[in-house]
Design a protein around this nucleic acid. Structure first.
Lengths: 165, 165
DNA sequence: CTATAGTGGTTACAATTGAAACCAATGTTA
DNA sequence: TAACATTGGTTTCAATTGTAACCACTATAG
């Protein structure tokens, strides 16, 4: 369990990149750790994948959405939504009804069973989040929201116009 | 491009979960956006995947590591490392030499070509990071490091003992 | 009306990832 | 030195994911 590196010496070139301090890398590790822990909790107790849980989370708050509207709300793509919806439907967690005004469109809702599950998961999810937040000082908690928002906008801008250099 | 939801009304149950404010969800979206943008930059210019780039980033700083030592340094798993190493080797970005003291072990290093690429990528990576950081106030920048550290520890604790509830 | 373009959603296929089994070499116990 | 456990690393197989093609329906233009 000793994590020293003994065989090699750091080179010390002034502008080496320290991966463990590199923000994109840290975000990725953090996000994976958090997601995996929570996915396991959902999975064990309710046989729910993360995409499926996300769909339920949205439908719990906003009834009568179509798949396309779920796409807007979740930042997930078409296909992921379609797959999540189809397993949720198979498990009787949601209902699909055809929109008479547009026969391509399906109106989705939590089923009674789905809502039951939803209502048991929400507190669990909130517990995880609270537990995370509890590790921060109140000062840090306050700033986290705006930090994420700003980083998100910046990264979004990359996707649209690329890094300007 | 109008992202209003018009067909459905928010239910307003007091303890609904607002996905768009849910920290694990936001971290996941943020991390994906950042990683995808950067992966595209590396991929286009150097035909490098993110795992491969990570291996190079470590080897650039710490010569003469084995795959197992890379695992310790990167939080990537055995298999991912093995695969990244094998494509890097095929592309002549790294060298493998057998450790005479332990014939299972392979000592890895950047090749001259690999180091050339490394030295061109480091500034690019730093540019991306700087660009992200530039979107934060100096106050936020200061706190981000400790925030990530704390969240990381908390999530790590979950993996080890699960959420205590 | 027809032709054509656009939208909602699914399917098919390829690439990526993860878990477990595996092989070879080393270390340990007796 | 035979037996067994451990370690370094790879392979295999199944599950997950992303991209593109696709089908059915609706909207628009002549």
């Amino acid at each position: 369990m000793n994590s020293e590196i003994n065989r090699s010496e750091e080179t010390g070139t002034p502008d080496d990149l320290r991966l463990e301090k590199f923000l994109p890398y840290r975000l990725s590790v953090l996000s994976n750790r958090v997601s995996n822990a929570i996915a396991q909790a959902y999975g064990q107790r309710f046989e729910l994948t993360i995409p499926a849980w996300r769909v339920m989370a949205i439908l719990g708050r906003f009834p009568d959405l179509s798949a396309a509207e779920l796409v807007e709300q979740t930042a997930m793509d078409k296909v992921a939504i379609s797959r999540a919806v189809s397993v949720l439907f198979k498990n009787d967690y949601i209902t699909r009804s055809e929109d008479p005004a547009d026969r391509r469109r399906q109106v989705l809702n939590l089923s009674p069973l789905g809502r039951e599950v939803y209502e048991r998961i929400v507190p669990l999810a909130q517990q995880y989040e609270n537990d995370l937040m509890a590790s921060l000082s109140s000062d840090e908690r306050q700033q986290l929201d705006s930090i994420i928002e700003k980083l998100m906008d910046r990264a979004q801008a990359w996707a649209e116009r690329g890094l300007i250099d």
